[in-house]
């Protein structure tokens, strides 16, 4: 009895959960996107006008391109930082490996808003960085005050712990003896890394990259508090539709476009990578 119920319970409960909290809200967003709003009222007038506005008004395409550029830059930076950090922990962490990895999760003990506001204080005109510079008689760094650079710093700060943790978990399952074998057969450390460690942990790296890239695409808080007048990203513009402007239907259409693009990006990434050669073990042994 237990063996027949177990799959239903273990798969059924998450399925119900996903349908109730993910599929249904997504469907309601899809429906809302083909209605329209008029001065804070939703008008159930089926049309594709919101998508037409998104396609023809350059502003929304600009927000999207800015977001893609920002998400790519932040994900590349996070991955570039996370790899040596996670690799270092794996190789030299000894018995403190877990502790060191958990250390990266400490910022998650506070809310995202608090972390962004703390960063605003750090980078702002009277923040720590500029405060020290000014007390030393130097000019404040305007590049980190309400600019896209500040937004990028904020996003790296927010998502780096996730990327480090994912790459660390991938490296934890990686057999380090393969590197030793490569070196014994004459490979330089760099060649051993690029021909063995990197490809066999590519799947974990891609997961880390995706877990940084996708939330960065819809980031709202960092650009709002750190980004300045030129820092409006797609997520921030989308949140605006559901906030004071009350143009919910357009916001829903923006959400649908973002969802489709995110899925497409993940699909393309995984189509172009041979998962069997990236350390992915999810296909089983058969």
């Amino acid at each position: 009895m237990r063996s027949r119920l177990a799959p239903w319970l273990t798969l059924g409960v998450p399925t119900v959960f996903l349908i109730a909290l993910f599929v249904l809200p997504l469907l309601s967003m899809l429906v809302l996107s083909v209605w329209r709003t008029e001065n804070y009222h939703i008008v159930q007038d089926w049309n594709l006008r919101n998508y037409w506005v998104l396609a023809t008004d350059g502003a929304y395409a600009t927000f999207l391109l800015r977001s893609i550029a920002m998400a790519t830059a932040v994900s590349v930076i996070c991955t570039a930082i996370a790899w040596p950090v996670a690799y270092g922990i794996t190789l030299y962490g000894g018995r403190y490996k877990l502790l060191l990895t958990l250390g990266f999760a400490v910022p998650f003990l506070t809310g995202e808003v608090l972390r962004v506001i703390a960063l605003q204080g750090l980078l702002g005109p009277v923040g720590l960085v500029n405060g020290v510079l000014m007390s030393l008689g130097a000019a404040p760094l305007r590049a980190i005050m309400y600019t896209n650079v500040a937004s990028a710093i904020g996003l790296v700060y927010l998502y780096l712990p996730i990327v480090v943790t994912v790459i660390y978990l991938s490296l934890l399952n990686f057999d380090q003896r393969l590197l030793d074998a490569a070196k014994i057969f004459g490979a330089s450390p760099a060649r051993a890394f690029f021909e063995i460690a990197w490809p066999l942990n590519l799947f974990g790296t891609l997961i880390g990259f995706a877990l940084c890239f996708i939330p960065c695409l819809s980031a709202t808080l960092a650009p709002r508090f750190l980004g300045g007048p030129n820092g409006t990203l797609y997520g921030m513009a989308m949140a605006q539709q559901f906030g004071e402007s009350g143009t919910w239907a357009l916001g829903a259409a923006m959400g649908v476009v973002l969802f489709v693009l995110s899925i497409a990006a993940v699909f393309v990434a995984f189509r172009t990578v041979d998962l069997r050669r990236t350390g992915f073990t999810g296909f089983g042994r058969s």
């Binding site: 008004d57 513009a237 143009t247």
Partner: peptide, 10 residues
């Protein structure tokens, strides 16, 4: 609000 939103977004 729709026209104003466009102005703000642009």
């Amino acid at each position: 609000t729709e026209k104003w939103e466009r102005v703000w977004s642009r």
